[in-house]
Nucleic acid binder design. Structure first.
Lengths: 302, 302
DNA sequence: GTTCCGCATGAATCGATAG
DNA sequence: ACTATCGATTCATGCGGAA
């Protein structure tokens, strides 16, 4: 189960990665930062120019049937959403990427705050790019039990039960649950509510990581492990390679390793490399193939 | 309570609307190539050029402190999301609009379906544009009880209760609900889960309309009345004017009329004008000021 | 072992103040 | 005028300690 950590400038380090060797790139690059002089971030107006050469290398290392998932979000500048994200998408298309889909990450724990002209921001973009119209997608690997059932149906039923007949709420509720329990799984949608329950039901082995990950303190910009996990299951098979060119605390690496995919993580900061290494060692348990992977491989061999 | 229905070509009819007379424009224009049989359908590549002159008229009729909410979604063309929506946003900015915010309409009860390279699309853009950095926004009018549309905390409590102590779930649940019920309301976020029960909680008076609206068949692209309702409450006051230049079945008009706002609806199809008129007459009940409006006016006069 | 409560904090944003 | 910094605002979540 090879895990590689490459330390250095993303653009330069990527040149050492073999062409067409990666099945999935899933990453959350540093967002544009208006305060470039103090923190070294890329100003919104320079963001596209900074990102394009890196994207060109990504194109080279990605397999033709592979996928690139980009997590990003606009900054507010002078009261407006800045357009650098849109401009980046348009520029990536000009570079030859196909913009296949836009997923929405609906964040449960967003930043607090209150402003006179704006509510709290609870979502981020997840742009999906591909190199060819036919790409690898393993939809069965991410099927969820009963759709949005866990989030919408049950609470709603319980609320209605409660409103209409408070005395019967307990028993009526329990009965509903048992009815739904036997149903088939369904495909998810392009809105991702990353919640513990969803992925815990899907793959019991990951429950603990998801629970601990949310409170992870080592890195300021971590996304929940359920996010890369979802895309890794959807766009790769066991043994294929996942790349995160801006790995940060290594969340993608944790997901990839647990799912028995090879992993290449790149970071400019030495401390992030060390952090990610330690985290993968700590959080990833050696184990046999999971039930789901066994089912997958049987289905695909037959 | 003036309600105007203007029949004709949107661009031409808009010229008859007085300048700076509208507080909110909320509309869902025909998407590119969509509804070709009824509206003629604008090809994606011509969409921006078609929309810009109309937007220029919108700019003229909107008050400086007003808001323009645009509901739109990309079409899939040759396996890719088309870029006409992004191009439209960029073009509107060049025309002088400020792109203040992007809201997400999260459609949980969307149509089933399944494709080899794509999951179901359950969200749409709601772009917010303004003319000036300071615009009218009445946040208190859309406060919701208990966090994220009253569905994260309560369901979670009930789920925990159920999992950990099934025998006590009935009474424990009821106790929790009554505890939370006394809490203050909170502001919503920029993701709108428009569902029947949520708006029922927010404003009990609208429950019936929402229930009928979801099954409304008269127009092919109806959005639920809760959507314009939310923005009308947020961006206008009683007596101000709401404009929907592509009114379709008149959903915005129903919301505006029920909320005691003036309304101007435009449509190219005579049958839609008739439909909207009939609907507003049928669904809007004459009534005194609502509790919420009373509270608002007291708060704002003090 | 469970449940409850308090507390810290997170990819933020705006407006005011200071240089 | 323009830029840089700071304080105030605010809620979902997980964790730790206590009963």
């Amino acid at each position: 189960m090879p895990i590689k950590h490459l330390h250095g400038n993303c653009l330069e380090v990527l040149r050492d990665v073999p062409a067409a060797s990666v099945q999935l790139i899933v990453t959350s690059p540093p967002y544009a930062d208006a305060r470039a002089s103090t923190y070294g971030g890329t100003p919104p107006d320079e963001y596209v120019a900074w990102f394009l050469p890196i994207a060109a290398e990504m194109k080279r290392v990605l397999k033709p049937t592979g996928t690139f998932i980009l997590n990003i979000k606009e900054k507010v500048v002078d009261g407006e959403r800045h357009t650098y994200v849109m401009e980046l998408v348009l520029a990536l298309r000009k570079q030859g990427w196909l913009w296949t889909e836009e997923w929405i990450w609906y964040k449960k724990n967003c930043v607090p705050g209150h402003w006179p002209n704006r509510f709290r921001d609870t979502w981020e973009h997840l742009y999906q790019f591909n190199l060819e119209r036919k790409f690898d997608m393993h939809q069965k690997a991410v099927m969820v039990p009963m759709g949005d059932w866990a989030k919408t149906r049950i609470p709603r039923l319980s609320e209605k039960d409660r409103t209409r007949d408070p005395s019967a709420s307990g028993s009526g509720f329990a009965k509903n649950v048992s009815n739904w329990a036997g149903r088939d799984k369904v495909y998810p949608t392009n809105v991702l509510d990353v919640e513990l329950d969803e992925f815990a039901v899907m793959d019991p082995g990951t429950t603990v990581q998801l629970a601990t990950e949310t409170g992870f303190q080592g890195h300021s910009a971590a996304f929940p492990v359920g996010l890369p996990e979802f895309f890794i299951k959807l766009f790769t098979r066991e043994g294929e390679t996942v790349l995160d060119p801006f790995q940060g605390s290594g969340t993608s690496g944790v997901a990839a390793t647990n799912l028995r995919r090879d992993y290449v993580g790149i970071d400019w900061l030495e401390e992030n490399i060390a952090l990610a290494k330690a985290r993968i060692e700590r959080e990833c348990r050696p184990q046999g193939p999971s039930l789901m992977d066994l089912v997958e491989s049987i289905e695909n061999s037959g």
